[in-house]
């Protein structure tokens, strides 16, 4: 009897050790599950077509850098990469700025009218792209934007607004009223108040929204699938998928394109991990 507590204790020490190891193992396995396929893809992107079949699993015997240069030319990345950058940058900047303006304008929610507008904007999250894309197509064609990058930028700006308004309106409403009053007293016009006081104070929220919208705009597949027919105005996800139609066996080329399309976001993510995680979560939890 007297030795029982001691026995228990040593057992639990051992148990703690086993438990800890098991937990670490779970985390390692999960990480491998995520990283393994990515690593395998990067390796594959350096292989020649014959090597895929001779040596599908090992490191490439000969690193075919030219997969990347061919992806640049043959897979039209020389067109779609700049397109993606331009479209995402412009749409993110404009959409976030407009969403901040709306959020500030609506933050005086004691007015019923503003509350209704807020609900309307947020309800935009539920609108299925499938339903509006053809009318949109017709409108864009009518105003002559079809066939230009604006055919993507304009819809992206609008579609980024609901999330932006959702995330930013509570932040704008929480700004101390006195700051706005003080600026008003100090002689600032409404526009100066917005640019010099409100915008800088909402910066953390703006970054969240910019990331939130930037990620989906960069990755968006369906909208450019319908609205961007030719490589000159396509973004990378669609560019790659349509390229594969004609080169389906050129695996190395396909994967080097995928790597190029993913790398910028991954780098941005690694540089600003915290902002990405909190920004994306903020949008998700509110949505």
């Amino acid at each position: 009897m007297s030795s029982a507590p001691q026995l228990q204790r040593s057992q639990s020490d051992f148990g703690v050790f086993v438990g800890k190891t098991a937990r670490t193992a779970v985390l390692v396995v999960a990480s491998l599950w995520v990283l393994g396929p990515l690593f395998f893809m990067v390796i594959a992107s350096f292989k020649s077509v014959p090597e895929f079949f001779i040596n599908p699993f090992g490191l490439p015997k000969e690193w075919k850098i030219e997969n990347y240069s061919r992806a640049w030319t043959d897979a039209q990345l020389s067109l779609t990469l700049p397109n993606t950058i331009i479209v995402t940058t412009v749409a993110v900047l404009v959409s976030t700025f407009l969403a901040t303006m709306i959020a500030y304008g609506l933050s005086r929610k004691e007015k019923k009218f503003a509350m209704g507008l807020y609900t309307l904007f947020v309800a935009g999250l539920l609108v299925p792209v499938h339903a509006i894309i053809l009318p949109l197509f017709i409108v864009l064609k009518a105003v002559g934007l079809f066939g230009t990058l604006l055919a993507l930028i304009v819809p992206y700006i609008a579609m980024g607004l609901p999330l932006g308004v959702l995330v930013l309106t509570p932040i704008a409403a929480a700004l101390p009223r006195d700051l706005v009053h003080a600026a008003r007293m100090d002689g600032a016009t409404e526009w100066q108040i917005f640019i010099r006081i409100v915008l800088p104070l909402m910066k953390p929220g703006l970054i969240s929204v910019a990331i939130l919208n930037g990620v989906w705009m960069w990755n968006e597949f369906f909208i450019p699938l319908i609205l961007a027919f030719k490589p000159e105005v396509q973004t990378m996800p669609v560019g790659i998928v349509s390229f594969i139609g004609s080169y389906s066996t050129e695996w190395g080329l396909v994967f080097s394109s995928v790597v190029v399309s993913t790398l910028p976001v991954v780098i941005a993510y690694l540089l600003m991990t915290r902002q990405f995680q909190s920004g994306l979560t903020a949008g998700a939890v509110k949505g």
């Binding site: 101390p176 006195d178 700051l179 009053h181 003080a182 600026a183 006081i197 800088p200 104070l201 910066k203």
Partner: peptide
């Protein structure tokens, strides 16, 4: 102002 309303940025 009571809160001073200094611009924090």
């Amino acid at each position: 102002f009571q809160s001073y309303a200094l611009y924090p940025h």
